[in-house]
């Protein structure tokens, strides 16, 4: 990608990106190379990543995130330009879209059946999401679950999976390929690396899923598998803590979540190894109840 503007489609949204950071262009090529992109300015969200101005740039090279006349974040050091773009793209959606109830969750699919992995930080949500994608599940999102207001469908928003610290090496080894961004060291979240969605995920980016299981993961070193079935009320309260716009949607937000927990069982699991979860997931997804 040359310096200039490019519009990138990650359904259901289009981003028009402008940057002169070569590392950003390289990582974009690597992770979004199979997405439709064109030289145009017809994106729904326009992002400009520009070098910092002023005296500070004499001491360290900085990157500033600009979005339609605003700079919502503090500048970061230039090595974090690509993660800043990813975080900023997520911010654009979570702060501007109320067409869906947005869950902070990984969502995966098998056919039209969806698995929701709501994640508090440290729950291992992203690692589990990445591991399941490598086992052939279709990635819908690693971060922003777009739940239809009716509460019965989740729209895919297929974007790279964000990996942190120790999970980077684990997932890289599991993947055995080179579909990863450069590692940005010493960010506010530690080391950060983004992983390209699998081809089947990108190919099915227009296809929603029907939620079939909600799994609240807790990763704990050395833990034996422990599974707790959650009541609908308890699932609703836990989900609400992982929403971006529950309050903005008001009554609708409540009815969306109610519908979701009425029609979809929820489990809390503690685990130390993804393999422990496989029998559970296969039995929960193996039979089609529809």
């Amino acid at each position: 990608m040359a310096a200039g503007e490019l519009t990138l489609e990650t359904p259901p949204y289009r981003f028009t990106l402008r940057t002169r950071f070569p590392a950003v262009s390289d990582n974009l090529m690597k992770l979004y190379g199979d997405n439709p992109a064109w030289a145009g300015t017809d994106g729904d969200f326009h992002i400009h990543l520009r070098p910092g101005r002023g005296l500070a740039r004499l001491f360290k090279s900085q990157v500033v995130f600009e979005f339609d006349g605003q700079s919502p974040f503090f500048p970061l050091t230039a090595n974090q330009a690509f993660p800043m773009l990813e975080w900023g793209m997520n911010w654009c959606i979570s702060n501007h879209i109320h067409h869906y109830l947005i869950l902070h969750a990984g969502v995966l699919g098998q056919g039209d059946r969806g698995l929701i992995l709501p994640g508090a930080p440290g729950s291992g949500k992203s690692t589990l999401t990445a591991a399941l994608m490598l086992k052939g599940w279709r990635l819908l999102t690693d971060e922003l679950g777009l739940v239809d207001i009716a509460g019965d469908r989740i729209t895919a928003f297929v974007r790279p999976v964000s990996l942190k610290n120790a999970s980077i090496a684990i997932i890289r080894e599991m993947a055995g390929n080179d579909d990863f961004s450069d590692i940005a060291r010493n960010t506010s979240k530690g080391d950060v690396c983004h992983m390209k969605p699998s081809p089947i995920s990108i190919k099915n980016a227009h296809r929603p899923v029907i939620p079939r299981l909600i799994l609240f993961p807790t990763w704990q070193e050395g833990a034996r598998l422990a599974v707790t079935e959650l009541s609908r009320a308890s699932a609703l309260v836990r989900l609400e803590q992982q929403t971006f716009n529950f309050a903005v949607l008001g009554e609708k937000g409540f009815s969306t979540l109610s519908h979701l927990v009425e029609h979809c069982p929820a489990l809390a699991v503690t685990y130390s190894d993804t393999e422990q979860l496989m029998p559970l997931l296969e039995s929960g997804f193996g039979t089609d109840h529809v």
Binding site: P12, D44, H98, H99, G250
Partner: peptide, 18 residues
Amino acid sequence: LPEGSRQRLVSSLVLADS
């Protein structure tokens, strides 16, 4: 408007309501 832009614009009414 393209679908995503329409969602974005209409969402602002939801926010104003809220």
